[in-house]
Design a protein around this nucleic acid. Sequence first.
RNA 1: GCCGGAGUGGCGGAAUGGCAGACGCGCGGGACUCAAAAUCCCGUGGGGGUCACCCCUCGUGUGGGUUCAAGUCCCUCCUCCGGCACCA
Length: 646
Amino acid sequence: MQRNWIGRSVGAHIVFPIVGTPHQASPAPDPPSGRVPRGFPSVTRGEEDSLKVFTTRVDTLFGATYMVVAPEHPMTEALCGMGRCPAEGRRRIEEMLRTSKARRTDETAEKIGVDTGARCRNPATGEAIPIFVANYVVMDYGTGAVMAVPTHDQRDFEFAKKYNLPLRVVIQPPGGTLNAEEMRTAYVEDGALVNSGPFDGLSNRTAMEKMAGWLKDRGQGGPTVTYRLRDWGISRQRYWGNPIPVITCDGCGIKPVPESDLPVRLPEDAVFAAHGGNPLARVESFVRAACPDCGKPARRETDTMDTFVDSSWYFARYTDASNGRAPFDRSKADAWLPVDQYIGGIEHACLHLLYARFFHKVMRDLGLLSSDEPFTRLLTQGMVLLGGSKMSKSKGNIVDQDDMVEKYGADTVRLFILFAAPPEKDLEWNESGVQGCFRFLKRLWRLIDLIETEKRRNGETERSVYVKLQQTIRKFRGDVEGRFQFNTAIAACMEFLNVLEADRDVQSPKLQTQEIPGRDFLQSAKGAGGVGPAQRREAMKAILSLLSPFVPHIAAEGWRRLGLEGEAETASLPEADLSALDVDRVQIAVQVNGKVRGRIEIDAGAAEPDVARAALALPNVAQETSGRKIEKQIYVPRRLFSVVVR
RNA sequence: GCCGGAGUGGCGGAAUGGCAGACGCGCGGGACUCAAAAUCCCGUGGGGGUCACCCCUCGUGUGGGUUCAAGUCCCUCCUCCGGCACCA
């Protein structure tokens, strides 16, 4: 997406000499409305007698039959003067300039052109071609002037038809012949060059490179890369922001505040009003300043900087935040940066992320720090939606969490938000799942009750529960630390609690007296019959420690009630006992021709022949394989055994 | 049009190329209760079978391909979401 935003285009620039002498015409390339950036490369000193264009299709140069420039182009007025453009034409150019750029360049807007009357010379063909001013040409991209090739660019084609401009075919499609008079649309595909002097017969792809070089040799242009970095207005007419350290003096002009006077601090007595613009402008003590050059009374800039400015480099300042002499010390910045993990919404992917990278590279080039990139990893978190669109105050589609906190408690709400979806995914808000998290925490709490009141502190240890706990710890840490998958980490805790609760002692005394069909089966299946108080306590300690970041209040209180050392939130996360995860028996699936036909339990370290023997002995498998030839066997240790028959 | 991202049960969502649907919600059945809430137990993708146990079959937006094996890899198309868009 940034590539799109940066807008890199590879092409060539070409210089079109203007016919006649512009110096004799009205000089005035002073921008009519002040919108034109000064010093833009389209006109540099000594080049007022030519127009420079950028094109990605230099191969079509011989077909350029006219030229279009943006209304804001610095040469516009001079060209009109030279070409004796009638008043009517000049009036229409004025109108273009008055229309907002957004409206003027709207795709549906009518394409309007005005013939300036001036001409320039196509450096390839040498012929003089007309120069138009057109509303759809923008000054921010390329040079603000475009060579028009109506036969091979749809937009130019339509424009040429409208204003009756000449067409010349310079590319012929493979196996076909174009005729300019009969064309109904531009031909934009590849082909072989014609009407292109020394380049006739070349494929247009080959020609691109050759022609760029040819132009360069002749001093008429050369290969160029352009970028479409958008303007980003950093000044804001509001109080909250960094003052722009600039002073305007009537005599000396715009002057930077001397370094010794930095930083410029915001006044604390500004008066805020609903209307009336930037409050800073009304604080006279702030505005009044002495000119750094002549010392006479001058005005301080009252615009402040956009927050993007700060957020594009604050991470570097954080490495040395109390440094009073410099933004930060290089050694400290190099020790900490780049930032390991960036977390932000997708809306930052183009804007903040791009500008932060930009700033960072500038800081690198200035020698302030060494790293090339500010961030190493990116997590684009999803947004919370309601009714299909992003929750926001301005849209009014918000859910007040206070109601939910009131009803279920802050821990439940936190847990639910994390459990509902993985972080990078957008989440359509739906409260129905919150009950489930509430129930989970209530069950957890009940178990803490039980453990707290238990007198005995020893008892049996159930191996399968121990193993399950180790699996839970490993999964939890893997999910949280590696992938930010909080939802599955929480699910693992729920799963473990289910196992723990299957234990007879854990169930309520009332239920224990009842005959529940299937309960014995359940318990033996989960193997949770022999959990003793000590094991329960250990397990709870681990779970509380894991869950503490998500449900800090319950974890802290549970920790305290169990009389555990220290505090849940500062206790280090438990480490999984990896040796326990090396189970000796595993269940594997048995496939015949890719379909599961049965399961067997084997020693984890069993050799393939033994596995094969056991697998093929399964009735279902034997049935499928009987009388058929075994072509292939695949054994994925501890996972499955697959046999291919024919 | 271009650039991103996503399509899996009724829902939110799981699944290093290796038993699709973990966990939760919802729903159905049951226990407890005079009753309800809360709680607990069982079941829960579709279709089928000599439907207790069990087995077969279809199934991850569409159509193809690679593979012993595809939600996962490759190609085609469709839909939705986000961004950019007369960019020469």
